[in-house]
Design a protein around this nucleic acid. Structure first.
Length: 572
RNA sequence: CGGGGCGUAGCGCAGUUUGGUUAGCGCGCUUGGUUCGGGACCAAGAGGUCGCCGGUUCGAAUCCGGCCGCCCCGACCA
C-alpha cells in the first residue's frame, strides 16, 4: 500500500471523549471511529488488525479440528425461552419484533443456537465428538459501555462449542481449547495469564479465563508470584490474617452512640476491625438473609450468589428498617428473625467478637460466634485481599487488574437437558450431550495489545497483529522515489506486509504518523544514507536502529520480519 | 439506575456568569510560492441552522422549561 493512497485519518489531538490509552490511540491512529455509545466503526487500519487476529484464531481453531460456521444474529425468542435465558439475560439482551410482532433477539451468545443445531442433526455417538465455531458480531446492551473498544454493545467474538459423549471427552475438548488459546494469545504477542474463573450465569463446572494484566482492565485477579496460583477475585481463595486475641472475655451489651461503621466501632472500642463482625442483610428472592463477615473483609457477591445458588441483592437501608426495625449500622446476628444466617469461613472459631445489638446505639461485645449465634452455615463468601496468604504455598497474594480476552467453560448438560440435546449411546440408551463453550473477544485482543504496548509516541503493535509489518519512510520522496519504489516492489514480492510512505511531507511529520500507528519496523530511505549505499532500519518497540546495505535491503528486511515474528510470539 | 462533566467549523477549544447587531482562536482543509532527518514558512481563501424543541425579550450561543446525545466514577455484567 502507498500511504499517499491510503485512508488513514490520523488525529493530532486527543479526542475529548477518550480516556483510556487504547481508546485515545485507536481513535488518533485512524483505526476506529465511534458511531454510538459502545458501537464502533472499524476503519481500514483497524479492520486489517482485526483480520490478522481472526486469521490467527481461525488457524489455531482449525488445527484442533474445530469447524467454522456462520450463525444468525437475528434469533427467535423461542430458543431463549427454552433455556430460560429470555428471562435471565434481562435487559442485556437486545430485543426486537418483526413485522408480524414476533419476538426476536440479537444474539448475545450462541449456546442455544448451537444446541439447536446439535439436537436436530446429531443422532448417535458415532456423530460425536464435534467442535463447532463461529467468528461474528454479537450484541449486548451493556448498561455502561466504556474504555473505547474494551466494553462495547456490538462486538466480534470467536465462540466455539464442543459436544461430547462423556465427561472425559469434555475434558479433552476443553484441554484442546486451552492449548489452542495459549497459542493464539502467544501468537498475538500478548502477555497473559490463565486464571480460575467463575462460571456465572453460563452454568457448568470448571472454567478458566485468559487475562491480560493491565490497569485498564475491569477484572481483578489474585495472583501468587511464588507458585503461580492465579484466580479471578470472584473465585479466588486465600488465607487471611488470623483474628487477634480479643480483650472482651465476657459477653455484654455496650452503649455505642451513633457509632455505626466498622471504622467507627473499631475506633470507639479500640479494637482491631478484624474483631468486628459486619452483619449485612441480603435479599434472596423475597427472603432476607443475614450475611456475616469480618470487619476488615468485603463480601464477594459473586461467591455469595453461588453459595445461594441464585441472584442476591443487598437490602436497602429502608428495607432493613422495615424488616428488623433497626438502622443498618446496628443490625446483628443475635435474636434476629432472618430466614437464615450465613457466615464467612474466616469467621469460624471467632471469640470475643463485636456484633450489632439489633438496638439503636448498641453493640454486643465478647461474642463467641459458634456458641452464641445460630449460624446456618459457613461459606467462603469474602473477597481475597492484597497480602492474604496463598493456599498452596503460603506466600502473600498480590491483587492486579486485567483485561479478559478469553474464557473457556465446561458447560456439562446445562443446555442439553433444558433444550433436549440427546444422542443414542452404544448401548442403545438416550443420553444428554456434554457441552463446552469457549469464547475469545477479537476486539479485546486489539485493545489489550494497545493498552500494554504504547508510549508517549503512540502504539507499538506486536508484529503479528500490526497493521503493517514495515513502513518504508522516505525523508524526501522527490529525491529517492525511484529507489524506494524498487525496494517496495521487492518487499511485496517477498511477502512482506509493507506500506510505503511516499507522501510529499516533512520527515518529522511522517515519523510521527508511523510511530503513532505503531508499525514495528521503520525503514528510512534518505539521500544521505543512499550515497553510502545504506538503508536505516528503526525498531518501534525499543527505538534501536541499524544500517543495512541498500542492495540487499529486501532480503535483510524480510529476514528481520521473520525473526521479530518469532520473538514476538515467544513471550508470555 | 445513582453521582459528576460536556455538547459552538472536520478536530481541540474560547465566548455563556453580566443578552446587543459581522460568533472568535489553534490545528486541519483549498490555491500559489518557498522549504524538506523529527508534526515547516509566507500569502490568499473556504468552512458554523452555536445538540433539538418550545418559551421570555425589541434582540438569545448567552436567560427559563423540556428533550436528546456523549464521556467519566459507581452499581450491573458470560
Amino acid at each position: 500500500m502507498k500511504w499517499s493512497k491510503a485512508f488513514i485519518p490520523t488525529l493530532k489531538e486527543d479526542p475529548k471523549e477518550a480516556e483510556s490509552a487504547s481508546h485515545k490511540l485507536l481513535l488518533r491512529g485512524g483505526f476506529v471511529r465511534q458511531h454510538q455509545s459502545g458501537v464502533y466503526i472499524f476503519l481500514p487500519l483497524g479492520w486489517k488488525i482485526m483480520l490478522k487476529i481472526i486469521n490467527i484464531v481461525r488457524e489455531e481453531m482449525n488445527r484442533i479440528g474445530a469447524q467454522e460456521m456462520l450463525l444468525p444474529s437475528l434469533t427467535a425468542s423461542e430458543l431463549w425461552e427454552e433455556s430460560g435465558r429470555w428471562e435471565s439475560f434481562g435487559s442485556d439482551m437486545f430485543r426486537l419484533k418483526d413485522r408480524k410482532d414476533k419476538d426476536m433477539a440479537l444474539a448475545p451468545t450462541h449456546e442455544e443456537i448451537m444446541a439447536d443445531i446439535a439436537r436436530n442433526s446429531i443422532r448417535s455417538y458415532r456423530d460425536l465428538p464435534q467442535i463447532w465455531y463461529q467468528i461474528q458480531t454479537k450484541f449486548r446492551d451493556e448498561p455502561r459501555p466504556r474504555s473505547g473498544i474494551l466494553r462495547v454493545r456490538e462486538f466480534i467474538m470467536k465462540d466455539s462449542y464442543s459436544f461430547d459423549t462423556s465427561w472425559e471427552g469434555l475434558d479433552e475438548s476443553y484441554e484442546k481449547h486451552r492449548e489452542a488459546y495459549i497459542r493464539i494469545f502467544k501468537r498475538s504477542g500478548l502477555r497473559f495469564r490463565v486464571v480460575r474463573a467463575s462460571s456465572g450465569l453460563m452454568g457448568g463446572s470448571a472454567s478458566e479465563e485468559f487475562m491480560v494484566p493491565s490497569p485498564a482492565g475491569e477484572d481483578v485477579l489474585a495472583v501468587c508470584d511464588n507458585c503461580g496460583y492465579a484466580a479471578n477475585l470472584e473465585v479466588a481463595k486465600g488465607i487471611p490474617d488470623p483474628i487477634p486475641e480479643s480483650p472482651f472475655k465476657k459477653r455484654e451489651k455496650v452503649h455505642t452512640p451513633d457509632v455505626k461503621s466498622v471504622e467507627e466501632v473499631s475506633a470507639f472500642l479500640k479494637v482491631s476491625p478484624s474483631l468486628i463482625v459486619k452483619s449485612l442483610v441480603y435479599m434472596v428472592g423475597d427472603d432476607p438473609y443475614l450475611v456475616l463477615i469480618r470487619g476488615d473483609h468485603d463480601v464477594n457477591e459473586a461467591k455469595l450468589s453461588s453459595a445461594f445458588g441464585g441472584e442476591v441483592r443487598l437490602a436497602e437501608p429502608g428495607e432493613v428498617m422495615d424488616l428488623f426495625g433497626v438502622q443498618v449500622g446496628f443490625v446483628g446476628p443475635i435474636g434476629i428473625k432472618a430466614k437464615g444466617i450465613i457466615a464467612d469461613l474466616a469467621l469460624k472459631g471467632g471469640r470475643g467478637m463485636v456484633v450489632g445489638a439489633n438496638e439503636e446505639d448498641h453493640h454486643i461485645v465478647g461474642v463467641n460466634l459458634e456458641e452464641d449465634i445460630e449460624i446456618s452455615r459457613f461459606e467462603d463468601i469474602r473477597s481475597v485481599k492484597e497480602g492474604d496468604k496463598c493456599e498452596n504455598c503460603g506466600s502473600p497474594l498480590r491483587i492486579e487488574k486485567a483485561i479478559e480476552v478469553g474464557h473457556i467453560f465446561k458447560l456439562g448438560t446445562r443446555y442439553s437437558e433444558s433444550m433436549g440435546v440427546y444422542y443414542t449411546a452404544q448401548d442403545g440408551s438416550r443420553k444428554p450431550i456434554i457441552m463446552g463453550s469457549y469464547g475469545i473477544g477479537i476486539g479485546r485482543i486489539m485493545a489489550a495489545a494497545c493498552e500494554i504496548y504504547h508510549d508517549e509516541k503512540g502504539i507499538s503493535w506486536p508484529i503479528n497483529i500490526a497493521p503493517y509489518e514495515v513502513v518504508l519512510l522516505e525523508i524526501d520522496h522527490r529525491k529517492t522515489g525511484d529507489r524506494a519504489g524498487e525496494l517496495y516492489e521487492d518487499l511485496l514480492k517477498r511477502g512482506v506486509d509493507v506500506i510505503w510512505d511516499d507522501r510529499d511531507a516533512g520527515a518529522g511529520f511522517k515519523f510521527k504518523d508511523a510511530e503513532l500507528i505503531g508499525i514495528p519496523i521503520i525503514a528510512v530511505i534518505s539521500e544521505r544514507k543512499l550515497k553510502e549505499g545504506k538503508l536505516e532500519i528503526q525498531f518501534r518497540r525499543d527505538g534501536q536502529s541499524m544500517d543495512v546495505n541498500f542492495d540487499e535491503a529486501g532480503a535483510a528486511i524480510a529476514e528481520i520480519v521473520r525473526e521479530l515474528k518469532e520473538k514476538d510470539a515467544g513471550r508470555t
